[in-house]
């Protein structure tokens, strides 16, 4: 994971010396797809990605962890159900719940793993229309105080790719009401609900705000020319910019270096 950016500009805050020391773990399970993109996003944000293997029994020296998307264990049994019991996940669960409150981001299959781990409430079931869906998706950042959204403004709309089959977020009404009341709905789908998720929920956080999960893929929207096809990048698509996802990875650095809003 030492490759340099090949394309686009090394944008924004990359290579600020105080941040290059920040070590962000990126977990790989059998069947993970987006670990390299997640590692690249970490590097473009100015930190050092650290590859973590599901069978590792120690988390090592990392300041935050990204659980990327894909199809861990082929989505057998339920999406994320088997990955949740990997040795490394016990370490991540303990660290996320500890006083140190390790920041953890679960993207897509990573979100499914976090709900199966009970780090986040609710669950994902098959899209209501039953089809795999891949599109550029507008999200509204509802809570900009989590470890992974500090660099966004509350109410800001961002565009990132979405691609899933089991993306319909569900929880019972009581849980949904609690999530809303506590500001733990972090992202909502705007304009179009791509999978039937309750209350247009695209992503949520735990109570402390260090654990965030979402179905869309911010790590695919971090480089000029290679993000969503938006009007800004010369495409005919929807609004936003093709680096709207980079804020996830700079936010956690802001958190790590103790920056406040």
């Amino acid at each position: 994971m030492t490759e340099l950016p090949l394309i686009g500009e090394a944008i924004a805050v990359a290579a600020e010396p105080r941040l290059a020391g920040a070590r962000i773990g990126v977990v790989t399970f059998p069947g993970t797809l987006d670990d390299r993109d997640a590692a690249r996003a970490v590097r473009l944000a100015g930190a050092t990605p650290v590859p973590l293997w599901h069978a590792d029994t120690a988390l090592g020296d990392v300041d935050a962890v990204v659980i990327p998307g894909g199809f861990s264990y082929g989505d057998y049994l339920r999406a994320g159900a088997i990955a949740r019991f990997a040795p490394l996940m016990s370490q991540i669960i303990d660290a996320a719940n500890s006083d140190a409150k390790l920041p953890v981001l679960g993207i897509c299959n990573g979100f499914q793993i976090l709900t199966e781990s009970h780090l986040l409430p609710g669950s994902m079931i098959k899209n209501d229309h039953l089809k795999f869906m891949c599109r550029d998706q507008v999200l509204r950042v509802e809570n900009s105080n989590t470890a992974w959204t500090l660099d966004y403004e509350a109410g800001q709309e961002i565009t990132v790719p979405l691609k899933n089959q089991d993306g319909q977020y569900i929880a019972d009404e009581k849980t949904l009401d609690a999530l809303e009341a506590e500001g733990r709905v972090v992202f909502r789908y705007v304009g179009f609900n791509p999978n039937g998720s309750r209350r247009d929920i695209a992503g949520i956080s735990n109570t402390a705000g260090n654990v965030v999960g979402l179905m869309p893929h911010p790590e695919h929207a971090v480089e000029v020319g290679f993000g969503p096809e938006t009007a800004l990048s010369g495409g005919a698509g929807i609004g936003g910019s093709d680096t709207d996802g980079l804020g996830f990875f700079t936010s956690v650095l802001t958190k790590i270096v103790g920056g406040a809003k």
Partner: peptide, 8 residues
């Protein structure tokens, strides 16, 4: 614990 997810 493993074969079912009590949420769903």
């Amino acid at each position: 614990t493993l074969l079912s997810n009590p949420v769903i």
